[in-house]
Structures are given as C-alpha cells and as structure tokens.
Design a binder for these strands. Structure first.
Ligand SMILES: [Mn+2]
Ligand SMILES: [Mn+2]
Ligand SMILES: [Zn+2]
Ligand SMILES: [Zn+2]
Lengths: 144, 144
DNA sequence: TCATAATTAAGAATGATTCCTGTTTAAAGT
DNA sequence: ACTTTAAACAGGAATCATTCTTAATTATGA
C-alpha cells in the first residue's frame, strides 16, 4: 500500500510520470503530446516522446488527465478532469474551456430516442478567438 | 453555364465524382474513405483511393457531403447534409444519426460567455449499440 | 537487499491521409 | 464534331501522429 499515490489504483510513480502530471496541472491550455514533450524535456532532458505519449494515455485511463479530440490532427490533453466543454479557434487552433454547465439531460433525451446504451457525449464549439477575429476584419482578402 | 450540375458552383462532373456522390447518397451509414473506395470500385474498378479521398473532400467543401470526426482513427462521410448529431458504438464503431433537434440556442449561450465568434458546434454521443450491449451481458469477463 | 514486473529511450513500424507526376478527360469555344 | 486546356485521374511516394519493439533501467514490495 505504498503506491496509491495518484488515484488509489495501482500505478507506479515514476519520474517521467510525475513530471508530466505536475506540468499538465500547471497550465490551463490543452497541449498536444508533442507540446507536453517540449515542456517535460526542460526538467527531464532525456525523456522520449514515446514516454510522453504512453504516460498521457495511462494517466487518462486513470482519470488524471483528459484526452480530447478536436478538429485538428493531434490529440489534446487536459489537466482539468471534471467534465467540461471546449472551444477551438478554427484559425490558430487555440483550445479553451467553455463556462457552460454540463448538459446531462441530453443523454437521457437521446436514450429515449435510440436503442443505444449511452455512455457519454462530447460537445465542441468552433469559432474565431478575439485575436484571429480582428485579423479577419483588418486583413480581409489577404491570404496569410 | 453547363456544369453547375451539383450546386451552382463550378465543379466538374466526372465519372468518379458522380459515382461517389450517388453511392454515398444510397446508404444511410457513415462510411470511411476506404469503405467508399470499396463500394465505388464495384462500379469503377480502376478508381484509386486517392481519388476517393480527394472527391469526398471536394464534395464536403461544396456542402454535398458531411465529413465527421468521431472517436476512431478515420474520418467518416455522410450523404445526409442537413445538420444533425451522431452516436457511435464504442465497441463496434457503428455510427448512426440521432433524432435530436439541433441545439441552436447553445451557440448563443456560449457566445455570451466567451469572446469567441462562434461558427458552429458538434455533439457526439458514445455508447453501446443493441448488439454490443447484449454481448456485453452474456460475455461478461470475456475478452473478445 | 533482492527479485521482478513495470517503465524507459531509441528508433522502427503502422496507418490514415496527402502529395507528386505523368497521363487522361471533361467542358468551353470554334 | 474538333481543339484547347484546366481539372481530374491512377499509381505510388511522402508525411505525420501515434504505437510498437527491444534491450536496458528502475520502482516496488517481500
Ligand atoms: Mn479543458
Ligand atoms: Mn448522419
Ligand atoms: Zn485564434
Ligand atoms: Zn456495437
């Protein structure tokens, strides 16, 4: 009963794992595995990208990190683990939390309309962040 | 003014493109590019996978097909082009339409709580289809 | 301290998608 | 119908995020 250090479930507390969890909890952004790799490298220079991928997966399986699929090529990870929704800027890719209460009733609504056993749902919003919306006005017609 | 054949926008009506659109409109499923490739090959045996990818993209840019990102590795395409939500079985990957009215009010709700210019949102449900839910009960503990 | 199962670094492999190149074709004008 | 030409095509190479393999290291619990 020594290693219930993260959750109460059996998970080894390694140097890489600890640093990854500490660092993702420091930031409010939603980094990709590669971005986490760059951050973690500063404290653990010999860490490998594979280790970052593997640990982010393990941590998300244990509910210590969320794994998000948005409309870009890479997965994003989130140290905030309570259910919440996200918005992504279609121009710069910045991903942020949405202060919208969980719509728990829609699972029930859908349950009544399908034969599926609903487990969860995701909602993602897409739009332009303030910075990108401004560029869009001033730079009309330009192709950046 | 001869080739406004699909949308009113300039798009060449080629053999591959026409068959792809016809075939995706025949089915109510949400095929991947490769699944469409297999279907199209039956009518156009020399078609290439690249052509299927390119045309599905072009058709979706023109609003004739929807391109969906669910929680599996491949993109899915949808011949039904009115906005609607989807559910995917977490076990077999089957993707189906949800008979839930569009939640247009949540875009407005989010607009008031963020600085983003909201363009659209996506909602996806995940769960077990009837077949997979049954297996889950009878085959408890088994690893298929 | 010791045994051992989990973890790691490094790099190879995978798989979906996109890109490249030389050839073919659809559409527009004659 | 004939010509022109930009768009589309097939085939295959390239890309890129992610996963896998392997031999060496390390955390844990006895
Ligand atoms: Mn978040
Ligand atoms: Mn659909
Ligand atoms: Zn932006
Ligand atoms: Zn199923």
């Amino acid at each position: 009963m020594k290693n219930l250090l993260y959750t109460g479930k059996k998970i080894k507390k390694t140097k890489a794992r600890t640093i990854i969890l500490e660092e993702i909890n420091k930031i409010k952004s939603h980094p990709t595995a590669y971005e986490m790799f760059e951050i973690v490298k500063q404290r653990l220079p010999r860490v490998s990208l594979g280790t970052v991928y593997r640990n982010l997966d393990i941590l998300s399986e244990h509910g210590l990190v969320l794994k998000l699929k948005m409309n870009d090529a890479q997965m994003h990870y989130d140290g905030r683990t309570d259910e919440h929704y996200h918005i992504q800027c279609v121009k710069c890719g910045k991903t942020e939390d949405i202060p919208l209460e969980m719509l728990k009733d829609i699972d029930t609504a859908v349950r009544d309309k399908t034969s599926y056993r609903i487990l969860y749902h995701t909602i993602s919003f897409y739009g332009l962040c303030t910075g990108c919306a401004e560029e869009d006005v001033s730079g009309k017609g330009k192709k950046v």
